[in-house]
Write a protein that binds this DNA or RNA. Structure first.
Lengths: 169, 169
DNA sequence: TCCTATACATAAGT
DNA sequence: ACTTATGTATAGGA
């Protein structure tokens, strides 16, 4: 608890360090931490599924050596199929809000936003109606500029562009 | 810091409880924790990708109400395709990113962007064809999550949410 | 939302 | 692999 002494000899590990941003310290220790963190992530996922078991979840990890690890509830393929199924159906519906939700297309995403704060990014694009889409587009215009500016700013310091762009660029 | 008193009245939260395995305490608080934990999970994933960025990772969550949330690095579809090893689907979606085992992966996720300057956000949504739109949508999904997370992170320091959202919220 | 106490995760050392 | 100091996530309350 207290730190009232010897800093000349650090007998013990320093606990978790402050989020280092270095890439490779050594191949072997990288692998070790990779494993640890992968397990940590899977454990959290497991806990998550435990708590909300009507929620489905899949995690796929491809190691730097292309070795696949996965976690799924109830299982990976089921979830992936559901996800892809969603995508395909929306594709078939021509992306723009088709009327698969006749009439009941209101703003409550999972009842999550009851306050005006309800973040648009919580919502799925497919669920927006035309009007909402237009607002969304306009916001993206602004967002785009702000993000671009911010990215430029960050590049001078530390954040990689890829972290933002999610692979599209 | 100290705990030298009243246990008759616990003025403060008791911190994280012991992983209770109860199912539903109340619909609303379930939703709240669902959100919190989902964000926590995505944050961990983000951190993970940050540290091992040659590792690919995708998380798909389907909420109890079947709403999809996802996180991906570089993006969900790429990882899923890699995992499924489905050549056709990659070809169909044109998302296949040639993975090189070593070195920097220069993934041209299409002919959409050639120069570092001609970013996708420079383009108008109206000019995209259906295929491009679908890819755009997928990228937005990831972008959305990544930005959301980053905003959350920044909010604790200095950047106002409004600066990002450009009036949509 | 925000906050605090506590449980949990984990970096480094052994 | 095991340990422990220290960072992080989060339940509950305000």
């Amino acid at each position: 608890m207290q730190e009232t002494e010897v800093n000349t000899t650090r007998r013990w590990g320093m606990g978790r360090k402050k989020v280092e941003i270095k890439k490779i310290e050594s191949k072997s220790s990288l692998i070790v931490t990779f494993c640890k963190r992968r397990n940590g992530l899977f454990k959290k996922a497991s806990e998550f599924c435990d708590l909300y078991d009507d929620a489905n979840l899949a995690i796929i990890v491809l190691s730097p050596n292309q070795r696949p690890y996965s976690f799924g509830h109830p299982d990976v393929n089921t979830v992936v199929d559901q996800y892809l199924g969603d995508q395909e159906s929306s594709e078939r519906n021509n992306i723009s809000c088709s009327e698969d939700t006749h009439g009941k297309n209101n703003m409550d995403c999972d009842n999550i936003n009851e306050e005006g704060e309800g973040c648009w990014w919580e919502r799925s694009v497919e669920d927006m109606n035309l009007e909402e889409l237009e607002k969304f587009r306009a916001s993206l215009e602004t967002l785009k500029n702000n993000v671009a500016m911010r990215v430029q700013e960050e590049r001078r310091t530390r954040v990689s562009t890829r972290d933002f762009l999610g692979g599209f660029s």
